[in-house]
Design a protein around this nucleic acid. Structure first.
Lengths: 345, 345
DNA sequence: TTGTACGCGTTATCAT
DNA sequence: ATGATAACGCGTACAA
């Protein structure tokens, strides 16, 4: 375990540690020859600086953390990619971190801030119902992106949010179905206990029905199975299968994720029925799969690219002190594809 | 920026720093009352230990790093989940890290080892053609899992590999197609320059043809577009579209990833043709999507769960000094689904 | 341009 | 059971 340290390099080179440090960090005042000599020795010795020591000493680092809740969701994948691109443009480093569903993202963030001297944090997903006391400990600017945070007005000034209005977008897609003539609209929803986006999307569904004078029927709602991976194809498949087996009549099916819609497509296919001829199916998210499945899936698209840009743009402005925390809501958009059709009223 | 440190806590509690340290790390010899008092103050002050400082001082930590090359691949997602489960069972911590396609995974690993005092490393994906000199710097046991490493015999003793034989599995699926009567088999391959799994899978394809006395035709090979996301649905879609447009005759299509097979399905569908009636389609990987797409996709399934178990089992044995490095090869399995059919010879 | 010495926050060692 | 203190490896003010 004879780890090479900066001292060893200094000793071997016959220089002081600070000179080596200067060589590593590209400081200006160092003799080019000394520098290249040091670099050669570093390579020869296979020396790698210890990041823990660096972070400990460094007063500030140009890095931003992105905390993603749940790693399965392909929706976040593209979001992260967009964000990363933007962060790199600004010459910052990004550290990506996954948070388990049962972990507290704030605790993780708190640790990371200390450890890495973060400049800012972006939270992707998650529910975010934390005490403002706890949020107060987080003395770096942070932005909550695409997460259905509860509207706790008390702590709104402590952070920014970039989101779509899940209730409204959910309303939008159900409204589209109704305007296409559908009245019996089944839904694959989140679990009953869900207090987050699942609840909002259900409310949007109810609002749309109500608006059009259609009465809500509990029998048409199928919560996803908590024991399966949430929002997954498997979950959509099972829920749809049960729905079909129940004998409940419906002409359209609203799955609250595109992944589940894919599963629904298969369940309907296996039942010997056709989409959209027998049932119209819509999803939610706007991820790639909906463009390639057969049939392609009508969905509510979220402006990922724009949201990513806005997120880090805003974060940098706040870091620079140019802006206050704010709460921006983006609009989704119904993308009509092959899985839906109008029916005669 | 007044960060609370262990010293502050010690001062407030009227005890020494070592006592606070003991309270934090659940050391045995500490008065329970003192401990709970300290914990209370810690909570009150919102104190969070600095991980950099801890790692710096700590002699060893029970943590294992998993480095994934490319974060898009859903194949790795389930692999990581399995691995994580196993690591938790052993009461170890896991740190997951994504490596860009243009980054050097060994460099990243080297940093991580220094920074986190790792006990072991698992590499997922990547090509792994590194000098044994460089690998030598990595003085922690590491395992290369599912990555098509080139068979450099020189450094084989320095690490373990858990893999499937890409050439053989590729042979397997193409052989299946041929035995089903197909002779004109198109392929969506990796780029020409690919030296990794892409090359192996192409070789497997060629081997199968040769074995059955079918001559290889370059016109039937469509490399994926390097400017699109690799192995993606989009990539499979575009390649298939071009293939169909080329007028080249074929009865079966082999896409070297299930994701690309999904794209192929759509391209064929849009051309007004049917799978499997007009074309048989096979993928590679065995990911979930192939079970839900319409039609479902015949593929080569990889025993992910088993491989994950074996991977970390082996790693722990090596850490414990119970085993030497070894190279285990798992067998895939052709899963026949709806996208293929036999044709008359 | 270069070297010396101190301190970052923590844990391990040793003494009490 | 507890406290004082020396590292851990590095960056940086300051001296040279």
């Amino acid at each position: 375990m004879e780890q090479v340290t900066i001292k060893d390099i200094a000793r071997i080179c016959g220089v002081g540690v600070s000179t080596v440090s200067r060589a590593i960090n590209n400081h200006p005042d160092i003799n080019p020859e000394t520098k290249s000599m040091i670099n050669r020795v570093i390579r020869e010795q296979g020396y790698v600086p210890n990041n823990s020591a660096r972070n400990l000493k460094r007063t500030e680092a140009k890095t931003i953390a992105v905390l993603v809740k749940g790693m399965n969701n392909p929706f976040f994948t593209s979001m992260v990619k967009s964000i990363e691109k933007e962060i790199k443009k600004k010459k910052y480093a990004m550290v990506l971190h996954h948070v388990e569903h049962d972990e507290d993202e704030i605790d993780v963030a708190l640790e990371l801030v200390k450890e890495k001297r973060l400049k800012g944090i972006i939270f992707l997903g998650g529910y975010f119902k934390h005490s403002s006391e706890k949020l107060g400990y987080l003395n770096v600017p942070f932005i909550l992106s695409t997460a259905g945070g509860s509207a706790e007005t008390t702590s709104k000034a402590m952070y920014s949010t970039i989101s779509v209005d899940d209730r409204k977008e959910s309303y939008r897609i159900v409204d589209y179905l109704i305007r296409s003539g559908h009245k019996k609209i089944a839904m694959i929803s989140a679990s009953i206990e869900d207090e987050s986006i699942g609840k909002l999307r259900l409310e949007g569904y109810k609002n749309a029905l109500e608006e059009h004078g259609i009465s809500f029927r509990q029998e048409l709602i199928r919560p996803m199975d908590q024991d399966l991976e949430l929002y997954s194809m498997e979950n959509g498949y099972q829920a749809t299968k049960q729905l079909l087996a129940s004998g409940e009549e419906f002409t359209a099916l609203y799955a609250i994720s595109d992944m589940m819609a894919v599963g629904a497509l298969r369940a309907i296919h296996e039942a010997g029925k056709k989409v959209p001829e027998d049932y119209s199916v819509v999803g939610y998210d706007g991820i790639d799969i909906g463009k390639y499945s057969i049939p392609t899936i009508t969905t509510v698209n979220q402006p990922i690219e724009e949201m990513a840009k806005e997120t880090i743009g805003l974060l940098f402005d706040i870091i620079a002190g140019k802006k206050q925390h704010q709460h921006r809501v983006f609009s989704g958009e119904v993308v009509v594809r092959e899985s839906t059709k109008s029916i005669e009223k």
